[in-house]
């Protein structure tokens, strides 16, 4: 059995709800869909018992009526587990994972600034990456948001 199949079996064995939801895309790449409320228990298990001790990054996705959030975790030997949750766009809140990975703070702030998601439990700190005087309610990575060239910021 390959290492990827080991991870897949472990996920399905431990968590009933992941049956048919774990996909091995190629060597070292595993994708899994998780319900938002189950994310923490899956994360906890994979970090503590399966060696997924690095967080590569967190990706936000605008999928119409929902937001997708993909947590890219990695092991020491280069395997990546992509855990994807979906949250409703009209109530886009999710919990921070900074107690597992302090480095998640920057990626979660990106989700807040660029998608307008609400990340609960983040420590106080400056926003990232948009400027402090960025207009409220403008979230550039939402699909409906279009960029416009401006005389003000772009010279002429």
């Amino acid at each position: 059995m390959t290492k990827e199949e080991d991870v897949q079996n472990e996920l399905v064995k431990k968590f009933d709800f992941l049956k048919d939801k774990v996909k091995i895309q190629r060597s070292r790449r595993i994708f899994a869909d998780v319900a938002a409320q189950d994310l923490r228990s899956v994360l906890d298990h994979m970090i503590k018992n399966m060696g997924f001790s690095f967080l590569c990054t967190i990706t936000g996705l605008d999928e119409g009526s929902v937001f997708g959030v993909v947590y890219h975790l990695s092991t020491k030997d280069g395997m990546i587990l992509n855990l994807k949750i979906r949250i409703p766009k009209d109530k886009p809140t999710l919990e921070t994972i900074t107690e597992y990975f302090p480095s998640a703070e920057a990626y979660e702030r990106e989700l807040m600034d660029l998608f307008g998601m609400q990340v609960e439990g983040l420590p106080k700190g400056s926003r990232y990456p948009l400027p402090d005087d960025w207009p409220a309610g403008e979230f550039p990575l939402r699909k409906g948001w279009k960029s416009k060239t401006s005389k003000q910021e772009g010279g002429i």
């Binding site: 990456p129 948009l130 960025w134 550039p140 960029s147 416009k148 060239t149 401006s150 003000q152 002429i156």
Partner: peptide, 25 residues
Amino acid sequence: DRLTLVKDVGHGKGRKMRWEDLHSH
């Protein structure tokens, strides 16, 4: 940082300007 987004203030696209245009601008 990758990304500084241009502030949306409702202007048109970037264009070339002649000296007189720049002066009146």
